[in-house]
């Protein structure tokens, strides 16, 4: 190691790490697509204080906020197969649970945790829009659904966007824990490549750079979108 970095390996492994990006992005996007509508509905149950569901949502958010994602992964990865085996046995479905692609577990874990994060984001964003907005929308003859779609959500979105950006970046970072489920994403791919020649420093430098690029691009994208939203807001003001 004292002869310095192995540059050829550094460059080769960079592309290996890069080849894990689609998986990381797929997990991120699918998790967001599941989490956003779910979190929004659950946030509404908090705002409208729907009796039983509200408490349950609170408990769920508290659990996810209170436990490390890696432990959530451990729990899902060791409990879901048990549940499925029991289920499949009962209904005589002939599928071996241990052949299920790890990406399905990733979808479950990351939408589970992201939903909890987004519930809080949506709840606080919705509470910044004054009640008068909904009343005004009703007064001009909009239904509650229309009021939310046309008046409330556009306003809340501007407030929520920076937090959604943070949640997305944290989600991308969290996919690096996919190794615990043998998910072939950025970190695992580069690590496996490094195992051959013990080039760990190079491998982790590559992983580091890939995440840096990935997250910077995502952050930049959100900034552009935020600018766009604000412009829209000004134009309508």
């Amino acid at each position: 190691m004292s002869e310095g970095l192995n540059y050829k390996f550094l460059i080769d492994t960079f592309f290996v790490a890069l080849s894990g990006v689609p998986v990381a992005l797929l997990v991120t996007i699918v998790s967001l697509l599941i989490a956003i509508p779910l979190a929004f509905s659950l946030a509404l149950t908090r705002i409208y204080r729907v009796p039983f569901i509200q408490r349950l949502t609170q408990l769920y958010v508290s659990f996810v906020r209170g436990t490390p994602i890696i432990i959530q992964i451990f729990i899902v990865y060791s409990s879901v197969p048990l549940l499925l085996t029991a289920l499949f046995k009962k209904y005589h479905i002939n599928v071996d649970v241990y052949n299920i692609h790890p990406i399905w577990y990733a979808f479950i874990v990351f939408s589970f945790s992201t939903t909890a994060v987004l519930i809080e984001v949506f709840r606080s964003a919705l509470s910044t829009v004054s009640k008068g907005q909904l009343e005004a929308a009703h007064s001009v003859g909009l239904t509650t659904f229309q009021a939310y779609r046309r008046i409330i959500i556009p306003q809340a979105l501007v407030v929520a966007l920076p937090n959604i950006c943070t949640a997305t970046i944290n989600l991308i970072k969290a996919t690096s824990l996919g190794y615990a489920m043998s998910l072939q994403e950025i970190t695992l791919k580069a690590k496996v490549a490094a195992n051959v020649g013990y080039n760990y420093v190079e491998a982790y430098l590559d992983i580091f750079i890939v995440y840096l690029i990935l997250c910077s691009v995502v952050e930049y994208g959100f900034k552009l979108y935020e600018k766009h939203l604000r412009k829209y807001k000004l134009a309508n003001a």
């Binding site: 970046i169 970072k173 969290a174 690096s176 824990l177 970190t187 760990y200 420093v201 982790y204 430098l205 992983i207 580091f208 995440y211 840096l212 990935l214 997250c215 910077s216 952050e219």
Partner: peptide, 18 residues
């Protein structure tokens, strides 16, 4: 920004090996 973009596990190994 760099810290915000780096997963803990990557930083951990980067420090451990680097």
């Amino acid at each position: 920004t760099i810290m915000r973009c780096t997963p803990s596990i990557v930083l951990l190994f980067l420090v451990y090996y680097g």
